[in-house]
Simulated assay, not measured.
Amino acid sequence: MANILCSPSKYVQGAGEMKKLGEYAQKYGKKALVLITESGYKRIEDVLKVGFEGYDIEPVYEYFNRECSKTEINRLVAVMNEKGCDVIIGIGGGKILDTAKAVAYYKEVPVLICPTIASTDAPCSALSVIYTDEGVFEEYLFLPANPNMVLMDTEIIAKSPVRLTVSGMGDALATYFEARACQASEATTCAGGNVTMAAMSLAKLCFDTLMNEGVKAKLALEAGACTKAVEKVIEANTLLSGIGFESGGLAGAHAIHNGFTVLDECHHMYHGEKVAFGTITQLVLEDIPAEELEDIIDWCIELGLPVTLKELGITEVTDEKLMAVATAACAENDTLHNMPFEVTPKTVCAAIKAADAYGRYFLGE
């Protein structure tokens, strides 16, 4: 099997870049469907007006219906047909961006991705995570191409709730460990081949950046400052993790996240928060040395990422609930089987219990 790496055609990161959106977008079409939430539009309406003013492209704004589901994708395809749009721009968080990518795929038009938060590694990928209308994981939609452009306005992102950027660090935490597992098992990555050296290097750089800059970035954001550490973490959460997970591969952490979506108690938690706990669970499955596991758990605690089931919202833990999570995580079409050893619902359930116990121990509970 070939070694394959893929990436967005263009990645732009800097303060105030959203004010140039029209300049960038006019290279891809004449009429853009701009997908955004109503609250998001109100927040950056003035920036968007400046961004499109004077450029040869017309924006058509459409509010997102909260879920990246087949129902919402089909609705937006119909809107594009009705309005005659020839490019789509997704502005917001992971589910909006995944929806924009899916709509672009079905319409065969370019897509520009403009995150207003750095909470997931979704922006750069040729992948959309499809959920049911109720928010339960349904499937991965693998796309034939990455976004035409990813635009990160760090001025906007730095003003977003700190918890969202921390959640992005939780998502990015999984990147290196899942890529390492896929390399060991020679699993097929989301890019359709084996792991490249470049992807492994980017995944490791992602991990090292999180460890070195993560806590500094959180403290800076809490102080309202966009520092070099913040800029580095935004790149780690988005570009390094995006290329790293896609061309490095997914394994245990994201599959275990998907398992937790079957529990209503966890629906209020962000994607990266569940992935962080999934990463700890994967590391328990791998039986990594105790000091390495302690370092990861301590880092999560410093950032405020969940290390126990209680922190995930599961106040009444039962074997039935954990087995339901483990069974869903081991679904035939999910990525837990990319681990370099056999996994079963029973071993995953045991790892979840142990991960929770370690988290409680290090929290002093």
Rank of each mutant, 00 (worst) to 15 (best):
S7E: 09
S7M: 12
S9N: 14
G14A: 01
M18W: 06
V34R: 01
E38T: 10
E38Q: 14
S39P: 02
I44P: 12
E45R: 10
K49W: 01
F52P: 03
I57R: 02
P59F: 02
E62P: 00
E62A: 08
Y63A: 13
N65P: 01
T71F: 02
L76H: 03
V77H: 00
V77N: 00
M80Q: 12
M80T: 05
M80G: 15
G84T: 00
D86H: 03
V87C: 05
I91M: 11
G92T: 00
D98A: 14
K101S: 05
V103T: 00
K107Y: 04
E108Q: 14
I117S: 09
I130S: 00
V136Y: 07
F142W: 08
M149D: 02
M149K: 03
M152L: 15
I156C: 03
K159Y: 07
L164F: 13
V166N: 09
D171W: 14
A174V: 11
Y176V: 08
E178Q: 04
E178I: 05
A179V: 08
A181F: 02
Q183L: 11
A184M: 09
T188W: 07
G193R: 06
A199R: 12
L202G: 03
L202C: 10
F207K: 11
K216N: 11
K216S: 06
A217M: 06
K228A: 14
K228R: 15
K232I: 05
V233Q: 06
E235N: 11
A236G: 09
T238M: 08
S247I: 10
L250D: 01
A255Q: 06
A255I: 05
N258T: 03
D287A: 11
P289T: 09
A290K: 15
I296Y: 04
E302W: 06
G313Q: 08
M323L: 07
A328T: 13
A331V: 06
E332V: 08
D334P: 01
T335L: 00
M339D: 03
T344R: 09
P345G: 01
P345I: 05
V348R: 09
V348N: 09
A350C: 04
A354V: 13
G359L: 04
L363G: 05
L363A: 10
G364N: 14
G364I: 12
E365V: 15
